[in-house]
């Protein structure tokens, strides 16, 4: 299951409720990861572009698109293992395409749904090309908007029982911190 389908299902069915105020009034631009969209479309006939935008919009921000985006989006520059390959200068030069696209949107925030793209944009391009925006995973956006409701005592008790059983099975013992 893709992250977009699961997040959409949670929101649509009301299993999670979102507080939009956190991102309302902000402009966000979405980087479309090659594997999630273009290559998913080419391999499986599903591109999830609409689900990605729908979920993002549920968090409150206004979406401003890069050009090109969607199935024709430009790679962040770190795909296909390039993030872990030794060609750093080439990876940063490649990423300039992305950095220029991001700058042109005038967005306040960046949504990068993939681990690899997020690392390239947040840890490499932001520094190299002086991008002022903060980069979010799509699940980070959702997570930050989720309205928190503590579980009932009964649910907590059941969960603790399951947890203790699991820790016993796996031999996990946490040291109790000393209380002062």
């Amino acid at each position: 299951m893709s992250v977009f389908e699961l997040l959409k299902e949670y929101i649509e069915t009301g299993r999670i409720k979102l507080d939009k105020s956190r991102f309302e009034g902000k402009k966000i631009t979405i980087h479309d990861p090659c594997n999630y969209h273009r290559k998913s479309w080419m391999s499986f006939g599903q591109h999830f572009l609409d689900e990605c935008r729908w979920v993002t919009a549920q968090c409150g921000p206004e979406i401003v698109e890069m050009e090109p985006h969607g199935l024709n989006a430009i790679c962040c520059g770190a795909g296909g293992g390039a993030w872990a390959a030794p060609y750093e200068r080439e990876r940063l030069d490649y990423g300039k395409w992305k950095a220029d696209q991001i700058k042109a949107t005038g967005a306040d925030l960046i949504c990068a749904p993939c681990h690899n793209c997020r690392d390239q944009i947040m840890k490499a391009l932001t520094k190299e090309y002086d991008l002022p925006q903060r980069t979010y995973y799509i699940w980070e956006l959702v997570s930050d908007c989720v309205i928190f409701e503590p579980w009932s005592e009964e649910e907590v008790k059941k969960s603790h029982e399951e947890r203790d059983k699991q820790y016993e099975r796996d031999g996990v013992e946490l040291e109790e911190e000393e209380e002062y």
Binding site: C34, R38, M42, A82, A85, E90
Partner: peptide, 16 residues
Amino acid sequence: SRWPWICTVCGRCEYM
């Protein structure tokens, strides 16, 4: 060559 590793296999070429 280094090129197949600098290419990120993004698939734009194949898509178009």
